[in-house]
Nucleic acid binder design. Sequence first.
DNA 1: TAGATTGTTAATCGATTAACAATC
DNA 2: TAGATTGTTAATCGATTAACAATC
Lengths: 214, 214
Amino acid sequence: MEVSKATLNRLPAYLRFLYELDRQGVTRVSSTTIAGGLDLNPVQVRKDIAVVSTVAGKPKTGYITKELIADLENFLGYHNTRDAILVGAGGLGHAILGYDGFAKYGLNVVAAFDIDGGVVGTSINGKPVYDMSRLPEIVGRFNIQLGIITVPSQAAQEVADRMVAAGIKAIWNFAAKHLNVPANIAMKHEDLAASLALLRMQLVSMDDANNQPQ
Amino acid sequence: MEVSKATLNRLPAYLRFLYELDRQGVTRVSSTTIAGGLDLNPVQVRKDIAVVSTVAGKPKTGYITKELIADLENFLGYHNTRDAILVGAGGLGHAILGYDGFAKYGLNVVAAFDIDGGVVGTSINGKPVYDMSRLPEIVGRFNIQLGIITVPSQAAQEVADRMVAAGIKAIWNFAAKHLNVPANIAMKHEDLAASLALLRMQLVSMDDANNQPQ
DNA sequence: TAGATTGTTAATCGATTAACAATC
DNA sequence: TAGATTGTTAATCGATTAACAATC
């Protein structure tokens, strides 16, 4: 991988910030402006931009907003849409199926799967919900590479296994459980418990700081 | 902060893994077992455990499952429940309100707020949805410190500002937008676009590896 | 010209991994 | 006793930040 995970993680935030500037008619932008808006270090912003941009920034004037937007969109593949399927049409699955914002990020959820007869056969936000048994057929027919897991944690490993067997190459896991998959399968675990732990600890340490004996 | 962010991020996964072992009747566990189950390095696991545990592991036998569970729960504050409020009772807000799993992590969402007359006055999973104007009153009355933002990104900054004004000390932000808050407010941004970027890039680089000319 | 800003090299910081003595 | 496993020190790796010459 030629770009670090840390950099990649920041790029979508740059892009959103630039969209906003562009919308306001700002045609040129400096690393200091971006860093200021996102609470980052300007040097870090310049280094990140250097990785993705095809044109150099100009001393004194900075970068051209629209050029930078184009480079970032290109690098992140936002125009190169990927189809995905989702397994688990419960609360969270429902929310993801109902959210059209992922289209901007080049993600197109085409169908969902579940084992609950109550939702199988219905459609959510125009996306059909199939029985789990049809997973291999649909994934194969449309050559889908990306799978989203929104089932309860006890069911998640089996779902992952079935996705891999069906030919899925990348898994976005929202279940609260580490999943074991072959090394050639990409996996991203959205661990909300871990996020919450981080937030709670910040909260507690700030409490401490405020109650410090002086 | 005496424990690193990286360590803190892993602790909830250890705990879930240990619950599973305990359920299976496994009374002792080594760092190698934990590392193997979670695709981590055993030394890293031992160092992380050293930070939180009150009793030392024993050479040859490892750690006592139940002791380690108790230490982790204690460290993460899972028995020390925090009340929270949520703003934005849309799809994602609905899913979070409907999910009772956060109770295990010591998080108790007590109420939601929205500006949509269609949901205000209703209740979701037993939690009342109030009009946004009542935020200061409820936050003040129950002395709530934690706020969850699940509104569309354009509305997120204003919601954050109103949370801070009402006395919220920590914000869990699910909107696709960086939010500026005073330095004494804890903030955790759940950036799904960034996650997706990471996953897509993994997928692409694996494609590359497989199509490498030999 | 003077000053703001870039791109890059070097220094620092933090986290992971390797090595290994201690010990149950 | 021998071997597995711990806890810790040292080495490595990766990412951030500081310093600064180049330049528009």
